[in-house]
Design a protein around this nucleic acid. Structure first.
Length: 525
RNA sequence: GGCCCCUUCGUCUAGCGGUCUAGGACACCGCCCUUUCACGGCGGCGACACGGGUUCGAGUCCCGUAGGGGUCACCA
């Protein structure tokens, strides 16, 4: 829908600006989600910009996983890579000229200066201040006041960076939609470099210039940027730009901890039981489906992980929404449409929220169970095919998949869980040794009963669940035993597992031949 | 270390001075249902970091302490 009647200057425009790292961080998704919801709610635009000023990386390759991640999650962007827009390019590297012009303008207006300090000279100053335990204030001794001074420095063989000539009095007041009013003394700020000696520009300058050019109205980002805000405000005001509205979100913290969730700390998270369980669950699915499991992208910090093992995008969005936001403390389930209507920055919490794999999984389980049967079948199918459980296009095995998914019901929490029921499909399946000992080896009558039961089973004309139930119950009556005395052994013998969906549905889906053969294999051993 | 931010059950959170013997969700523990597991139902465990104020009254306001975190690059 276009809003031609609304002037562009009043438009709500938000952005998410990932660096091309090759993966989409779950915390980044949360930040992007809040930006996206805020824009969508207001009928505004959500823009994707790639902050690729770090040269030498293969950008195209490294942004693909990020773009794919957003697409999979259903978070469309109104302007950005692949979709274009009126402010192209959407790659920071392609906007270098704009940044350089801004830097020149700042020097021109006296808000920045050429600084001819050599890196070690400057560092020496900084270290001296540190050693003396006094706040470092650069005395600007290598600042070029004018072209003549610059020429003199250059005659010495020096090269210049451009530094901000930051105020040293007063306060920078940030009105933040999440944190309220934040005041920072200008004196505590440094003369930050905005342009390198080689002429390339640094992030803060680029970011401010691009946000202005893109007409970003609300800068919604993670709180680690709060301390960067004063310098950005100085840049933007010096350039005569209008100040965007700021909202600094708490970051997503590590499971069971309070520091920022980082993919570099995977080893540490592995010690967290819930995180390790999720990881292991995913790895099992991935290995059997031939999915690459490089630690770089295949782990619960990265969105790809969830896509690969069959999570539902909406469940992830819903869970992430609650990481730092709540409607009223009661309601937790929201469709994407609902969250778009109900989200508000005012209700974002201030404290970091730690990532809880268990709750994510609970949301996922509910979301998956709520899907219509056909969708659950469609979602599990690729996993069944990839792991060799069924053959694509083979009507018989596909029919079996449908039966299993239906019978499994909410025991399937993620699509990849279909592999838990591999014994329904294939000949080779794992036997749970503990269950075998408990239900077959230990009870003295187990093998004998199984040996007897296989006779009427083999003779059965109908091998559907209802008929099987009748058959087994009749058998128990004839033998004068409780159903519990045979059914556990039956399950372990035919599935190898102590748990699963209904016994009779299980037998029906396994089929007479296999079921009887499995019983024989056990009872005759 | 300087500056800034944050602090309610294990975790996510509700609470915007009296309705709080602090509510919900996930997890956990019982019981029920049941051929197992899961679901579901019922119940339970479990928190206002601490210390001062302000107030008739504080989880809610103020100050301090402690703790946690972020940030201090010619990274983004």
């Amino acid at each position: 829908m276009k809003h031609n009647l609304i002037s562009l200057t009043n438009m709500i425009r938000t952005r998410f600006a990932p660096s091309p790292t090759g993966y989409l961080h779950i915390g980044g998704v949360r930040t992007a989600l809040f930006n996206w919801l805020f824009a969508k709610q207001a009928g505004g635009q959500f823009i994707l910009r790639i902050d690729d000023t770090d040269a030498g990386r293969n950008v195209t390759e490294a942004i693909q996983p990020i773009l794919d991640g957003f697409r999979w999650l259903g978070m469309n962007w109104d302007e950005g890579p692949e979709v274009g827009g009126p402010h192209e390019p959407y790659f920071q590297s392609g906007r270098d000229e704009l940044h350089k012009q801004a830097a020149a303008k700042l020097v021109e207006s006296g808000h920045a200066y050429r600084d001819y300090a050599k890196p070690d000279e400057f560092n020496a100053l900084r270290q001296a201040a540190e050693k003396a335990k006094v706040p470092f204030v650069y005395d600007r001794r290598w600042m070029a006041c004018d072209d003549a001074a610059a020429a003199a420095f250059e005659a010495e063989g020096r090269t210049a960076v451009v530094r901000l000539k930051m105020p040293r009095e007063g306060q920078c007041v940030i009105s933040d939609l999440v944190r309220g009013e934040v005041r920072i003394d200008w004196a505590s700020e440094q003369d930050h470099v905005i342009q390198r000696a080689d002429g390339s520009c640094l992030y803060h300058l680029a970011s401010v210039v691009d946000d202005n050019d893109f007409e970003i109205s609300h800068v919604i980002r993670s709180e680690e940027h709060l301390s960067n805000t004063p310098r950005q405000i100085f840049i933007l005001e010096s350039l005569g730009y209008e100040r965007p509205v700021y909202a600094h979100l708490p970051y997503v913290a590590e499971p069971g901890g309070h520091s920022k969730l980082s993919k570099r700390k995977l080893a540490k998270y592995q010690k967290n039981k819930d995180f390790a369980n999720l990881m292991e669950r995913g790895s099992k699915i991935a290995e059997r489906c031939g999915i690459a499991t490089e630690a770089d992208t295949f782990n619960p910090v990265i969105v790809d992980f969830y896509r690969e093992i069959g999570f539902t995008p909406d469940a992830i969005l819903n869970y992430l929404l609650l990481l730092g936001w709540s409607l009223d403390g009661e309601r937790e389930k929201f469709s994407v449409v609902e969250m778009t209507k109900l989200f508000s920055l005012e209700r974002v919490t201030k404290a970091p929220a730690s990532f809880d794999p268990q709750k994510l999984l609970a949301f996922q389980g509910d979301a998956f169970a709520a899907l219509p049967l056909e969708e659950r079948i469609a979602k599990t199918k690729p996993f069944a095919i990839a792991s060799g459980l069924i053959q694509d296009g083979d009507a018989e095995s596909e029919g079996k998949l449908e039966d299993v998914v239906e019978a499994a019901g909410d025991r399937l929490k993620i699509a990849g869980d279909i592999l838990d029921f591999d014994y329904c499909f294939v000949d080779e399946y794992a036997v749970n040794a503990k269950a075998y000992a408990k239900r077959i080896t230990k009870p003295e009558s187990a093998k004998a009963l199984l040996g007897k039961l296989r006779v009427p089973m083999e003779q059965a004309e109908a091998f559907d669940a209802a008929s099987l139930e009748k058959l087994v119950k009749q058998f128990c009556e004839d033998e004068g035993i409780q159903i519990g005395e045979i059914i556990h052994a039956l399950r372990v013998a035919t599935t190898g597992s102590p748990a699963g969906f209904g016994m009779f549905e299980t037998l029906a889906v396994i089929g007479k031949d296999k079921a009887v053969a499995r019983i024989d294999a056990v009872s005759l051993r």
